[in-house]
């Protein structure tokens, strides 16, 4: 009795093979509605704009000197503490936590943009 009922139900719910393939092939990977990250990766120009915005907001920096390639210590005349301050500001802006080893290497706008653009969690 039960098995015949089960068979009847299963046959009722059978899905054509072509439909499942389509689901796996395209739709499933483009829309991940419950995912908190991954698909909303930042555009490079967006990253550049936001990084420059953060750097310009620093009180010691002349905003007209800021370009995407500028070096914090050589070109803008900042000291090491200012550099760390900027890196912290960038962490806050992009909701990242940059480990010390990487943070020490970031000493110019170019490197900061590169790092943040390649970071999977930046948002």
């Amino acid at each position: 009795m039960a098995s015949s009922l089960r068979a009847a139900i299963i046959s009722h719910f059978r899905v054509p093979a072509s439909q499942t393939l389509a689901l796996n092939g395209s739709k499933l990977w483009t829309v991940r509605s419950m995912s908190s990250h991954g698909d909303d990766h930042l555009d490079k120009n967006q990253v550049i704009d936001r990084v420059l915005e953060v750097v310009k907001c620093h009180p010691k920096i002349d905003p007209s000197k800021v370009t995407p390639e500028v070096h914090f210590q050589k070109d803008l005349g900042l000291d090491s503490l200012d550099t760390v301050e900027i890196v912290m500001a960038l962490e806050e802006e992009f909701k990242l936590e940059i480990p010390d080893k990487e943070a020490d290497k970031i000493d110019s706008c170019g490197l900061a943009i590169e790092y943040i653009y390649n970071h999977p969690m930046s948002s």
């Binding site: 090491s80 503490l81 760390v84 301050e85 912290m88 962490e91 806050e92 936590e97 010390d100 943070a103």
Partner: peptide
């Protein structure tokens, strides 16, 4: 610098 970072965080 470590302390500065933790303060900022």
């Amino acid at each position: 610098f470590e302390f500065f970072k933790s303060a900022c965080r």
